[in-house]
């Protein structure tokens, strides 16, 4: 018969309690963060915050909003994601269909892991050096390039992981019918793995839009609306950071509102990737 009070059963109960506690800790901290951002940001979120650029005296608490930063962030993250996808998708497909388990694929994957580990502040500094070297000032283009560097390894590795999970039979069936590797890549893998690819793209977009350190030197900051690729552009993370460091409470409250906008965008991206993944998942062959 089971002795409930034997040492090992007591230990089991204690540890189960501890595990539940740490599980609650992780879930609770997410709830706490979201609650703090929403409860602080919502009162100072107004229509003009969303639809206006900063007006004169904005940083002293006068009228205006962060539309310039919102648009700037969306443009830069969008551009960076597109470029990263343009480079990353072929690399991921190449690794899988053409290379298989060759030595070169190992090197490429290792290089991607290395790039993935480089902190965003280093990408920002590197981007700045390159821009200095070719005589470019802080601009939207610089920000897009820095974000492309940052997002490329994230996106490529995410897609690569997804493609690796694909059932091998499908690929072999296509090859057996006489398809070339390119046709396998474009007509079988990309279709079959579309949900995963979209998830990877949105993951990279979310990382790009939230990253402040890489655009700090490369994109600069301005109160004007984004107008040209060669002009400095504002971004939401930096808007949050700069406004929070102002000594006026009204401006700090706007930093909370801007943080709420940023969190909202990231949450929408994260949830929609989940939703899209489920929706498109219907069309794949299991």
């Amino acid at each position: 018969m089971k002795n409930r009070w034997a040492g090992r059963h007591v230990a089991e109960t204690i540890f189960k309690g501890l595990m539940l506690f740490s599980f609650g800790l992780v879930a609770g901290s997410l709830a706490l963060i979201l609650w703090t951002v929403i409860s602080k940001g919502l009162p100072s979120l107004s229509w003009s915050m969303l639809t206006q650029a900063p007006q004169g005296g904005y940083y002293l608490g006068k009228a205006g909003g962060v539309l310039n930063a919102t648009l700037g962030s969306l443009y830069m993250a969008g551009g960076g994601t597109l470029l990263a996808l343009f480079l990353g998708l072929p690399i991921a497909l190449y690794l899988e269909t053409y290379l298989g388990r060759s030595v070169w694929s190992r090197y490429v994957r290792l290089a991607l892991d290395v790039l993935w580990g480089i902190p965003s502040i280093v990408y920002g500094a590197i981007g700045f050096i390159i821009m200095l070297a070719i005589g470019m000032r802080a601009s939207m283009l610089g920000g897009i390039i820095a974000l492309t560097l940052l997002e490329l390894p994230i996106l490529t590795r995410a897609i690569d992981e997804v493609i690796r999970m694909m059932p091998r039979d499908l690929e072999q069936a296509a090859l057996a019918l006489g398809a070339t590797p390119l046709e396998v890549a474009t007509r079988v893998i990309t279709r079959q793995m579309l949900p995963g690819i979209i998830t990877g793209v949105l993951l990279a977009f979310g990382r790009g839009i939230g990253d402040a350190a890489s655009v700090l030197f490369t994109a600069g900051y301005t109160d004007r609306m984004p107008s040209s690729l060669l002009r400095p552009v504002a971004s939401l993370p930096l808007a949050v950071y700069f406004q929070l460091s102002m000594p006026y409470p009204e401006v700090q409250n706007r930093a909370y509102a801007a943080a709420l906008i940023l969190t909202f965008i990231v949450l929408v991206v994260s949830l929609s990737s989940r939703w899209l993944g489920g929706k498109l998942g219907k069309f794949i062959i299991k």
Binding site: F23, V26, A27, S29, L30, L32, I33, T36, V37, K40, L203, G206, R207, I209, G210, D211, A212, A213, P237, V240, Y241, L244, A255, Y256, A259, L262, T263, V266, L267, V269, S270, L271, R274
Partner: peptide
């Protein structure tokens, strides 16, 4: 349930974590 929760936690931008740190 845990999977999307971790995804969201990983997706929150670092500036927002910073804001939360200074407030809370």
């Amino acid at each position: 349930f845990m999977k999307p929760l971790l995804d969201i936690l990983a997706a929150i931008p670092s500036v927002v974590y910073g804001v939360w740190g200074t407030i809370a």
